[in-house]
Design a binder for these strands. Structure first.
Lengths: 220, 220, 220, 220
DNA sequence: AATGAATGAGTCTTCATTCAT
DNA sequence: GATGAATGAAGACTCATTCAT
C-alpha cells in the first residue's frame, strides 16, 4: 500500500488499475463533484474493490491529487513548439494555439470540468498550487505569442492579454460545461455523441479564430 | 413544517430567517459545492438552529431549489427594457447589456458560482430546468438585440450569436471563478476587496465592450 | 453535538446518558483495552444508539478523556483530611490511608484497570498528563503522612517512600487484576461475587496494615 | 504454511525470522496493546514482509500464543534450584529469589507488560491458561521457600503468602509500568537508559529485601 | 413557532487475512 | 519458500433528517 500511496512523490508511473480508477473518478468528479462522489461510486465505476482506492492512493483526497499530477503532465500546453516555430506568422500561431487548446480541452473534458470545479474551491493545498502553476505557465506562453505578433506589427497594441486568455479559456469552458443545453436549444439531439462533438469543436474553432482575428486587428 | 416547506409552490415570500439561511448556503455552496457543504455548516454560518433548515425548507435539496427560485426572479436579464428602448443605438444597447450583465454577476457572485457548478451536474430536476429556462430567455433576448443591430446594418452578419453569448458568459464567469489567481498573478493584493472588485469590473467592462465592438464590426 | 463534545472543557456536568456511556465504556476498556473495544460494543453495552457516542463525546478518544476527567475528580485521595487530623496517631493515619485506598480502588475497579493499561502506553496526551498529575498529588500526600510519623519517632527512618507507595499501589493493583486467578487457586468460587470481594478486601486490608507496620518499625 | 503455523504444537524451534517477528510484536504489544497494534506495524518494526506473519504464525492471535509459548519456557522461575540448595539459609533464599525475579522481569520488561495487559482480559483461551499455570508454578515454589523458613523458625508464622507474592510481583510490576513517571518525578532524566535501569533495579532490590525481612520477622 | 435530542444510513479508512505466483 | 496484490469485514465517524416538546 505505502508503495503505491506515495507513487506520485517518486514520480512513479501508474499501473493499469490505477489509471482505471483515476479515469472513473475523473468522470464522476466531473459530473457530481468531489464531495458528491463516494469512493464506493468510484470503485463501482472502475470495476474494482472498494478498498483498492485507499490501497493504491491512500485516500480519496490523494486520489484526486494523483489525478491532477497524472493529467497535469499532459496539460502544459504544447505552446512552446508553436512559439519557437519561425515558419509561422503570428496569426497562424494564434490559430494553431486555439486549435490545440480546443483539442486538448475536448480530449480531457472531464478533467477540465474537475479543474473548473476545483478552481472555485477556497481550498489551499497541493491541487490549488498545481492549478496556479499551470495557469501561470499557460498565461506566460500565451502572452509571448501575442506580444510577438504585436512587435511584428501584425496585431494591434493595447489588448488586455490576460483577459483575452480568459475569453479563450472561458468560452471553451462554457461550451464544455453547457454543451447539453446547447444541444437541446439547437436541436442537435439527432447527432451521435461523436458527431455532435465534432460539430461543436469545428464551430468553436471557427468562432474563436474569427473572434481573435477581430480583436487582434481591431482599432480600439 | 409543510407550510414553509412548500413556500415556493405557493410563491410565498421568504421571511428574514429564510433569506439569512439561503444566503449563508449560497456562500458555502459557492465555495465548497452542494455536497461539500453540510446543513450544520449552513446553520452555523447563518446563525440559526440546525433543525430550522429542514423546518423551513423541508430538506437540503429543497433549500437549494428555493435558492434558485429566489435568485431566479432577479436573474432574468433586464434586457427587455434595453431591447424596447428606441432611443439607444444597437451598439449602445450592447454596451448597456454588457454592463448590466457584469453588474449582475458581480452582485451575485456566489450564486453564479453555484450555477456554474450546477450546470456541470448530470442531474435532471427542477434546478436543471430552471437553469435551462433562464439560459433560453437570456439567449433569446441577446439574440434579438444583436439581430436588431444586424438589421440596422450596424453589426456585421455571420456572427455566431450563441457562441458570442458564451464568450460573454464564459469570460465573465472565468474572471469570477479565478479572480483569486488573477489577483495574485497581477500583484493586486494591496487593494482592498472592494477596490479590487471595482478594478476588475471596470477592466472587464472595457475589455468586453472592445471585444464586442471588434467582432460585431469585423469583416470575416 | 458541539455543546456536549466540549462538556469537559467547561467542566459541565455529565447527564445520565453520558454517564451511562462512560460506565459501559469503562467496563469494556478495563476488560478489553481501548483499542480492543469498538464504539459499537460500547453503544450496545450502554443500550444507546451508536451515533450517540460521537454525538455526546465527539470521538472514542474524547470519551476516554471525559472518563478520566469524570473519574479523576473523585480520585484525588482524601488524604488531606487524614493528614491534617490531629487526633490520629501516625500509624492510625497509615491504616486509614490503606483502608481508604482499598475502598476506592475496589469501588472503581474498572477505572483502575483502565488506568493501569493507560500507564503502560507510550502515549503523551491529556490522559498521560492527568495520570502523572494524579500520581504526583497522591505521592506528595503519602510522603507527608509517612514523614510526619518519622518526625514523631513512630516510624523508622531510611524508608524508601516512593517504593513504599509502589507496594501499596502495586499490591492492590495486582489483586484487582488477578483476582480471577486468586479465586480459582484458593477455591473461592462458592462465594458470591460480593462475598468474594468483601473477603479479599478484608484480607488485603489486614495484610497491608501488617506489612506497613512491619516495614515502618523495622530496623534495617 | 501449516507447517509453521503449528510450530508450537510440535515444539519446533523458531527460526531467526520468527523470533525477529515475535520480539518486534512483544515491544509493540507492550506499548500499545494487542488490539492497538496492527500486523502492519509488526511487519514494519520487524523489517519483514507483511504476509510473513500469517505465513509463519497463521494469525495475529497465534503469533501472540507463540510468543507466550516461546517466552514461557524461560519464565518458569529458576526457583527450584534455590529451593533445593541446602547451603543457603532461608533468608538468603528469599534474597536470591528477589534478585532473580527482578533480573528476569527487567530482562523481559516488554513481555511482562504484555502479561500484565493479558491478565486483565476477560478472555479464556490458551494464553489465559498459560498464565494461570505459570502463576501456579511460581506460587507453589514461592510458598515452599517461605514455609521452609517458617519451619526452621527463621520466619514468623501467620504470613499471608499469596499476598506476599502479590507484593513482590505487584511492586516490581508497578515499577516497570510506571518507570517513566518515576524517572520524571525524581529528576533522573540525566541518566542514560541503561544507567537508569541499573539504578532502579538496585533500589528495588534493596527495598524489597528490606521489606521482606521486615515482614518475615515482624511480630504481628 | 422553534429546537434540543436523537438516529439510521452512509461516509472514508484500516484491518487481518488470503492467494496466485 | 516467500511475497505483492488484493479484498471482505469491520473500524470510527458524519450526515441529513425527524420528533417530542
Amino acid at each position: 500500500m505505502f508503495k503505491f500511496a506515495s507513487a506520485k512523490e517518486v514520480n512513479m508511473e501508474y499501473n493499469d488499475k490505477q489509471i482505471q480508477i483515476m479515469e472513473a473518478a475523473e468522470r464522476l468528479f466531473a459530473d457530481r463533484g468531489f464531495a458528491g462522489t463516494s469512493v464506493r461510486d468510484i470503485a463501482e465505476a472502475a470495476g474494482v474493490n472498494l478498498a483498492m482506492i485507499s490501497y493504491y492512493f491512500g485516500s480519496k483526497e490523494k486520489l484526486m491529487e494523483a489525478m491532477f499530477q497524472h493529467r497535469g503532465q499532459h496539460l502544459k500546453m504544447q505552446l512552446q513548439s508553436i512559439l519557437v516555430n519561425n515558419n509561422m506568422a503570428p496569426i497562424q500561431k494564434v490559430e494553431k494555439l486555439i486549435d490545440e487548446y480546443i483539442d486538448r480541452i475536448f480530449q480531457k473534458q472531464c478533467f477540465h470540468k474537475v479543474m473548473i470545479r476545483e478552481q472555485m474551491m477556497d481550498n489551499t493545498g497541493p491541487i490549488a498550487e498545481q492549478i496556479a502553476q499551470l495557469k501561470l505557465t499557460n498565461q506566460t506562453l500565451f502572452k509571448q505569442i501575442i506580444q510577438e505578433g504585436q512587435k511584428k506589427g501584425d496585431f494591434k497594441k493595447g489588448i488586455d492579454i490576460p483577459f483575452l486568455m480568459m475569453t479563450l479559456v472561458g468560452t471553451a469552458g462554457q461550451l464544455i460545461t453547457t454543451q447539453h443545453y446547447y444541444r437541446e436549444t439547437n436541436n442537435l439531439q439527432p447527432l451521435s455523441g461523436e458527431e455532435f462533438e465534432k460539430h461543436i469543436k469545428k464551430k468553436l474553432s471557427a468562432y474563436l479564430k474569427t473572434l481573435f482575428k477581430a480583436i487582434l486587428s481591431y482599432e480600439a
